[in-house]
Structure formats: C-alpha cells, structure tokens
Amino acid sequence: MTTDLDDEELLSRTARDPAAFEPLVVRHSAALHGYFARRAPHAADDLLAELWLQAYAARRGFDPARGPARAWLFGVARNVLSAHWRRTARQRPALPGDGGDDPWEAVDARLDAAAVAPRLRDLLAGLPEEERELLLLVAWEQLTPGEAAAVVGIPAGTARSRLHRARTRLRADAPLDLAGDPA
C-alpha cells in the first residue's frame, strides 16, 4: 500500500510510478490550499491545481537529503504564487517599479478583515519582505523555521536569526501601542 509510505518515499517512487503521487495530493492539499487562500483568495482552487501539476512535472528534482517533501511542496507553492502575481500585474495600475510578487497587499486585506490591530499591521508592513514571509509560514502554515528556510531558499540558521529579529521588532513599542494605555 503506497498510502503507508511517508512523503519522501512516495515522492522518490513517483519517478517510476506516477500513481504514487496521488496520496501526496490527498495528504497535503488542505494545507497548500490554505496557503493560497490566505494570499490569493479568489484564485486558490486554480493555483492548487497548478501547484500539483508543477510539482508532478518537477517530482524527479526532489532530493530528500535537502529537506522534507512538505517544505519542497510549499517551495513550489511559493513559486506558483509569485508567477500568479507577476501574471496578474497588468490587472493592477501600472506604477513604476510594479511587477513585484509580494502578496502583502492581499495578506494585509485579510488582517484588516480579521480586525487585527492597526499597530501590528503597521509593524508587519515594516518588516523586510523575507522576514515577514518566514513569520507567516511559521504562524499560518505551521512550518518549523528549518522548513520555512527551505521554502524561501535560505539556510536554516539564517532563517532562525531573521525570525528572532522579526520577533524583536514586533515586541518593540508594542506594549505601549497595543495596550493603548501603559498605565
């Protein structure tokens, strides 16, 4: 039974046995769909299908020595999302320098809708893009710092130090502003 195998064994097997890919789709679709739903809510279903097609096409490139399959799949998802933002860039007003692929605008709209304190949103907006992304992968996708590092494509130690730096920034000034009244 292929469903008894772990992700990495399944992915290794799919190079010769395409049917071994399906249990991966079943196992990880909810988490990966959530990743898209938080960052491109109207396109999540399509992006999920696109992600699995690309992951399937790229499956022979997966190397278990470099990290777990889950992190690899989120890495593919991240690139599918980037391509989506670039592709739809022309839908947005053509501003000089546009064409970036940071989904912060959509994420911030979600935070706004969830009534997250404006001060926290400002602090998050002020984080470097990579720190913010690592933080959200840990907070929302429940990845370990090591897995989040693999998704973003940086060494695990670097990701840890950036996450600690992000936490420090989010702690700075926060009691005063979030509590409203320090007294």
Binding site: Q54, A58, G61, R66, G75, A149, I154
Partner: peptide, 10 residues
C-alpha cells in the same frame, strides 16, 4: 524556480 537551496526546477 527554486524550491529551496539546490532545488531548482523547470
């Protein structure tokens, strides 16, 4: 795209 260090896929 890069799915992580050394994980370039096409």
């Amino acid at each position: 795209f890069t799915g992580g260090p050394g994980k370039d896929v096409t």
